[in-house]
Nucleic acid binder design. Structure first.
Lengths: 207, 207, 207, 207
DNA sequence: TATGAATGAGGTTTCATTCAT
DNA sequence: AATGAATGAAACCTCATTCAT
C-alpha cells in the first residue's frame, strides 16, 4: 500500500500548496483582487492543476473559510478551557473574537465576506459543509451556557438562542467599528465592546 | 441670481435622473450586475455625463446608501411615534428593521455592502457624510432610551452604548439568518429575533 | 496462439468499452461538450488508457462515425430489400436517410461534422478507412440503379454519378432544412423532400 | 449636420476595420482558430472596442457570412446576366458556385460552417437576418426558372422547390468532394459536377 | 498495460474610467 | 455641460495530450 499512500500524501501536499498560495494572496490583496491565475503563479503550478483539486474558485475559498472558522474555534476553545469560571469563559470567548477580528483580519474578512454577501454564493452542499464549521463555534458558547446553568452560575435561559444572540452582537459590533468616528462620540470601541460583554454576562448572573 | 438658481435646479434634476436610473437597475439586477453604461442608457444620457455629476461609481452608490438609511430612519421614526409606551417603541423599531431587511432588501444590501466591506471604500469626507445618516437611526433609539430612563420606565443604562449594542445585535442577527438551516436546529428565525428583542427589553425594565 | 488470441480479445473489449462511453456521452451532451476526461470517467478507466487504444480524440470519433455509417447502411439495405420494385427501393432509401437525419441525429451529426469540416481532420489512412463506410452507402444506391437499368425499369444513366448526385441532393436538403422558415415560404420541408425524390425517380423512368 | 455625419462615417470605418481584421484572420487560420483577442490585435484596437461595435463574436461572424453570401449573390447575378439563354444562365450559376467554393474558400467555409452546425448558433433574429441573404441567392435561381418557364424554354415545374433542389445538390456535391478519392473511382469531380448540372438542365428542357 | 496528475495557452466577455470633441 | 467611442487588463474556466510511475 506504500504506493497508494504516497500518492495520497502527495495529493494532500499539493492541496496544501495551493491553499497556501491562495491564503497568502488573499491576505495580501483581498478577496476580489485574488484571481485563480495569480494563485497558480504563486503556487508555481498551472491553473488547470488548481481546477484538478478544486472544482471552482468557490470551493477553494470555502476551504479557506472553513480553515478560518476552525482557527477561531480552536482559539476560542483553548481560551475558554483555561478559565475556571463560566463568566470568565464567556468573557474569554468574546475577547478572542475581538482579537481575531483584528489580528486575523484576513480570516475574519473571508468569513465575513461570505456571511455578508447578498446572494447565495456557495452551492447548497458546499454551504452546509462550511456552516458546520460555523456551528461548532456557536455550540462552544452554547455548551458554556448549558454547563453554567447546570452549575447554578447562570440563570435558566434558552442556551441555543442566547448563544446565537451573544455571537450576533459581537459580530454586529465589529461591523459598527467602522463607524466609530461618527457614532462613538468620544468613546473607544474597546470600551463599547467590553460594555456589551459585561451586559450579557450580568444578565446571565443577575440574582 | 435667477440664472444661478436655475442652473442649480437643473443640476439637481440631472442628479435625480441619474439616481433614479441607478436605483431602478440596482433593484432589478442587484449590486454587482449594475454597470455605469447600463445606468447611462437607462437614464438616457451619456456615460461621461454621469462622471460629471458623480466622481465615481462609489460616490453614486453612496448616495443610494444614504437614501436607504433615510428610508429606514423615517420608517423607524414613524413606527416609534405611533407607540405610546417606550417598550413598544423599541419593539417597533426592531420590527421595522427586520421588515426592512426583507422587504427593502435592495436598500438593505447596499447599506450592508459598504458596512461589510473589508477595505475602506469611501473617501473620508464621503464616508462621514454617509455615516451621519447611519447615526440618525442609532440616535433615534438612543432618544427612546433616554426618555425611557427619564420617565422611570427603563433602568439607568448608558443610552448611547446600549443603543449601539441593540442595533448591532439586530444587524448581526440578519446576517446569521443565512445560517438558519444549520444553526437554528428547528427553531424559526422570527422566533429567535423576537427572543432577542424581548431579552433586551426585559433587561431594560428589570425591577 | 491462445495467449495472443486472448490478448486480442481483451484489447477489443477495451476498445468497445471506451467506444460505449464515448457514444453515450456524445448522444447525451453533443459533440463539443464531450471531453476525453469525461469519456474516461464514464468508462471507468484512466485518460491515459484511452490514448493507448486511440491515438487521438479524432481517431476515437472516427470510429463512431464509421459506426453511424454502418447503421445507416444497414437500415437502408433492409428497407430496400423489402421493396420489390426499383422505384420503391429508391424511395425507401431516401425515406430512410430522412428519418436517420432526424431520429439518429447524433450519428448524423458526427458524420456531418467530419464531412463539413473545412480542414482535413483525419490522417489519410484513417480517412480512407472511414470513407469506405461512406462508399458502401453510395454503392447500395448504385446497385439499385444498375439493376434497374438492366431490368429496363430505368433509363440508361451513369449509375455511379447518378447515385452520388442523388445522395448529394438528399444530404444538401437536410442542411437547408435549417432555413425552412426563411426559404420555404409556407411549404413544408417534408413536401420539398418528397418533391425532390419524385423528381429524381420520374427522371429515371421517363418514357 | 457635418459633425454627426462625420461621426457616422468614422463609425462605419471602424466597423469595416474590424471586419477586415476578422476576415483576414479567418481566412488565414480558419474559423475555430480565430479569437476575438487576435482580431483586436490585428485591427490594432482594444478588445472592448470590438464589443462596442458587435454584441458578440456571433454577430461579428454573422456579418462576415452575410458578406460572403452577398459576394456569392453578386457573382452569380453578374454571370447570369451575361448569358442570353436560360440554360446558359443556370449553367453559369452552377459554375460560379463551384468556383466560389474553391476560390473563395474562406467565405464558403464560413457560410458552410453555420449551415452545418448541429446546434442553433445564432439568435433567432440574427439568424433570420442572415437567412435573408441566403434567400436572395436561391431566389435568383428561382427567377431564372420562372422566366424560363414563361418563355417556354423550360418545362412547367415548381420553380421554388426546383431551385432549392438545384442548390441543395450543388451544395451537397461540394461536401462530397472530400470523398473524391474513395467514391469517384477514377472520375474527376469536375466531370461529376458538370454531369449533375447537365442532368438538371436537360430535365428542365426535356421535350 | 494502465494510470491520473499536470499542463498552460487560449477561450469570450465585462467594466469603470478617460478624453477629445 | 454633454457626449460616447475607446481602452485593455482581468475575470474564470476548459481541454487534448503527455509522461513518470
Amino acid at each position: 500500500m506504500s504506493l497508494k499512500e504516497r500518492r495520497e500524501r502527495e495529493k494532500n501536499e499539493r492541496r496544501k500548496q495551493i491553499l497556501d498560495a491562495a491564503r497568502s494572496l488573499l491576505f495580501e490583496k483581498g478577496l476580489n483582487a485574488t484571481s485563480m491565475n495569480q494563485i497558480a503563479k504563486q503556487a508555481e503550478i498551472g491553473v488547470g492543476t488548481i481546477y484538478f483539486y478544486y472544482k471552482s474558485k468557490e470551493e477553494l475559498f470555502a476551504e479557506l473559510q472553513a480553515e478560518g472558522l476552525e482557527l477561531l474555534y480552536s482559539k476560542t476553545k483553548k481560551a475558554c478551557d483555561n478559565e475556571p469560571e463560566f463568566t470568565g469563559k464567556l468573557r474569554s470567548a468574546a475577547r478572542v473574537f475581538f482579537k481575531f477580528s483584528k489580528e486575523n483580519k484576513d480570516y475574519y474578512d473571508i468569513i465575513n465576506y461570505f456571511l455578508s454577501a447578498p446572494e447565495q454564493i456557495f452551492t447548497p452542499s458546499l454551504k452546509d459543509q462550511v456552516d458546520q464549521h460555523g456551528d461548532k463555534v456557536i455550540s462552544l458558547v452554547e455548551n458554556i451556557l448549558v454547563e453554567g446553568i447546570k452549575s447554578g452560575a447562570f440563570k435558566k435561559i434558552d442556551s441555543r438562542r442566547y448563544s446565537i444572540m451573544f455571537w450576533s452582537t459581537l459580530y454586529g459590533l465589529t461591523h459598527f467599528k467602522k463607524l466609530k468616528n461618527t457614532i462613538l462620540k468620544g468613546d473607544t470601541f474597546k470600551n463599547l465592546f467590553d460594555y456589551c460583554v459585561d451586559n450579557f454576562i450580568s444578565n446571565l448572573t443577575a440574582e
